Computed example of a mutant assay.
Amino acid sequence: MQFGGDRALWLRVSSICDRPTYDGWIWLAGYAINPTTGEALARREVFARIAGLQINPQLPAGPSGTARQTTRRRGV
């Protein structure tokens, strides 16, 4: 519910954590992404209800077809 509707969190999952959880729940690690560009915004760990997860294969993919490259900014 926290990330429903306009507050949806798009997460590119990099791993599933093996921490113990309640039945039907899971810890996911990955990157919050911009759903329009596919650009990684921030590393996140999310405790989520498995039944509430949705897969969106229509997000933009990078050159390899599996991950989008991100650019890093240099400090001023």
Rank of each mutant, 00 (worst) to 15 (best):
M1K: 07
M1T: 06
Q2R: 13
Q2E: 09
F3C: 02
F3S: 03
F3V: 02
G4W: 10
G5Y: 13
D6A: 07
D6V: 14
D6E: 14
R7W: 05
R7N: 10
R7C: 10
R7H: 03
A8Q: 08
A8T: 09
A8H: 12
A8F: 10
L9R: 10
W10A: 02
W10R: 08
W10M: 08
W10S: 09
W10L: 07
L11V: 12
L11R: 07
L11N: 01
L11K: 05
L11W: 02
R12W: 07
V13M: 00
V13S: 01
S14H: 00
S14Q: 03
S14R: 07
S14Y: 00
S15H: 02
S15E: 11
I16D: 13
I16K: 06
C17Q: 14
C17W: 04
D18Y: 08
R19A: 08
R19D: 09
R19E: 08
R19G: 00
P20Y: 09
P20V: 14
P20A: 13
P20R: 11
T21C: 07
T21Q: 01
T21D: 03
Y22D: 09
Y22V: 15
D23C: 03
D23H: 08
G24M: 08
G24L: 02
W25R: 03
W25L: 08
I26Y: 07
I26R: 15
I26Q: 14
I26S: 12
I26D: 03
W27Y: 11
W27A: 00
A29M: 10
A29L: 10
A29S: 14
G30A: 11
G30I: 05
G30L: 04
Y31P: 01
Y31H: 12
A32E: 04
A32C: 11
I33P: 06
I33K: 03
I33W: 04
I33E: 12
N34G: 02
N34C: 03
P35H: 01
P35C: 00
T36E: 11
T36W: 06
T36R: 05
T37E: 02
T37P: 03
G38V: 01
G38A: 11
E39P: 02
E39C: 05
A40V: 00
A40G: 01
L41N: 12
R43C: 14
R44C: 06
V46N: 15
V46L: 15
F47V: 04
F47I: 04
F47S: 06
A48H: 04
A48M: 06
A48L: 10
A48S: 09
R49A: 15
I50V: 15
I50S: 13
I50Q: 14
A51N: 09
G52P: 10
G52T: 10
L53F: 04
L53H: 08
I55S: 01
N56V: 05
P57G: 00
P57Q: 00
Q58G: 12
Q58T: 15
Q58C: 11
Q58P: 02
L59E: 13
P60F: 13
A61C: 02
G62Q: 08
G62P: 05
P63D: 11
P63W: 04
S64H: 05
G65F: 11
T66V: 14
A67R: 15
A67P: 05
A67N: 14
R68A: 14
R68K: 15
Q69K: 12
T71R: 04
T71D: 02
T71I: 07
R73C: 10
R74N: 02
R74A: 03
G75E: 11
V76I: 14
V76H: 05
V76E: 06
